[in-house]
Simulated scan of single mutants.
Amino acid sequence: MGNFSKWLGAGLGFTLGGPIGAALGFALGSFVDGFSAEDLTSEQQQYRQQGNRNTQSGDFEISLLVLASIIIKADGKVDTKELDFVRNQFVGMYGKERANNAFQLFKGVIKKDISARQVCLQIRQHMPHASRLQLLHFLFGIAKADGQVAEIEVEEIRKIAGYLYINPSDFESIKAMFYNASENNYKILEISKTATNEEVKKAYRKMAKKYHPDKIQDLGEAHMKGAKEKFQSIQSAYENIKAGRGM
Score class of each variant (00 low, 15 high):
residue 1 M to F: 06
residue 3 N to P: 01
residue 6 K to D: 13
residue 8 L to G: 05
residue 10 A to W: 07
residue 12 L to P: 04
residue 13 G to R: 00
residue 13 G to Y: 00
residue 14 F to Y: 12
residue 17 G to S: 15
residue 17 G to E: 14
residue 20 I to H: 03
residue 27 A to H: 00
residue 29 G to N: 05
residue 29 G to A: 08
residue 29 G to W: 00
residue 30 S to W: 00
residue 30 S to E: 10
residue 33 D to I: 06
residue 34 G to F: 04
residue 34 G to N: 10
residue 36 S to F: 01
residue 41 T to A: 09
residue 41 T to Q: 11
residue 41 T to Y: 03
residue 45 Q to H: 07
residue 49 Q to Y: 02
residue 50 Q to L: 15
residue 51 G to M: 02
residue 52 N to K: 09
residue 54 N to T: 15
residue 56 Q to K: 08
residue 56 Q to I: 06
residue 59 D to L: 06
residue 59 D to I: 10
residue 60 F to M: 15
residue 61 E to K: 09
residue 62 I to N: 01
residue 63 S to K: 01
residue 65 L to P: 04
residue 68 A to Q: 06
residue 71 I to L: 07
residue 72 I to H: 10
residue 72 I to C: 11
residue 72 I to A: 10
residue 73 K to S: 14
residue 73 K to Y: 07
residue 75 D to S: 04
residue 77 K to F: 08
residue 78 V to R: 11
residue 78 V to Q: 13
residue 80 T to N: 13
residue 81 K to W: 03
residue 81 K to A: 13
residue 83 L to Q: 10
residue 88 N to M: 11
residue 89 Q to L: 04
residue 92 G to N: 12
residue 92 G to V: 09
residue 94 Y to G: 01
residue 95 G to I: 07
residue 96 K to D: 14
residue 98 R to Y: 10
residue 98 R to S: 13
residue 99 A to K: 02
residue 100 N to H: 02
residue 102 A to R: 00
residue 102 A to W: 00
residue 106 F to I: 03
residue 109 V to A: 01
residue 109 V to I: 15
residue 112 K to M: 04
residue 113 D to F: 03
residue 113 D to E: 14
residue 116 A to M: 09
residue 120 C to G: 02
residue 120 C to I: 02
residue 121 L to C: 06
residue 121 L to Y: 13
residue 121 L to E: 12
residue 126 H to V: 06
residue 126 H to Q: 12
residue 127 M to A: 00
residue 127 M to D: 00
residue 129 H to P: 04
residue 131 S to K: 04
residue 133 L to E: 06
residue 133 L to C: 03
residue 137 H to L: 03
residue 137 H to I: 03
residue 137 H to E: 09
residue 138 F to H: 13
residue 143 A to V: 03
residue 146 D to C: 12
residue 151 E to P: 10
residue 152 I to K: 02
residue 153 E to D: 09
residue 154 V to T: 14
residue 154 V to R: 11
residue 156 E to P: 02
residue 157 I to D: 01
residue 159 K to E: 15
residue 161 A to C: 04
residue 162 G to Y: 11
residue 163 Y to A: 05
residue 164 L to A: 07
residue 167 N to L: 14
residue 168 P to N: 13
residue 172 E to H: 14
residue 174 I to Y: 02
residue 176 A to Y: 00
residue 177 M to E: 05
residue 178 F to V: 06
residue 180 N to C: 05
residue 184 N to E: 12
residue 185 N to G: 15
residue 186 Y to W: 10
residue 187 K to G: 06
residue 188 I to M: 10
residue 188 I to C: 09
residue 190 E to M: 14
residue 192 S to C: 03
residue 192 S to R: 07
residue 194 T to A: 09
residue 196 T to L: 03
residue 200 V to A: 01
residue 200 V to E: 04
residue 205 R to D: 14
residue 206 K to C: 05
residue 209 K to M: 07
residue 217 Q to R: 12
residue 221 E to L: 10
residue 222 A to I: 08
residue 223 H to A: 02
residue 225 K to C: 04
residue 227 A to W: 11
residue 227 A to P: 13
residue 228 K to C: 09
residue 232 Q to E: 15
residue 233 S to C: 14
residue 236 S to E: 15
residue 236 S to M: 12
residue 237 A to V: 12
residue 241 I to T: 13
residue 242 K to W: 10
residue 244 G to P: 11
residue 244 G to C: 11
residue 245 R to P: 14
residue 246 G to E: 12
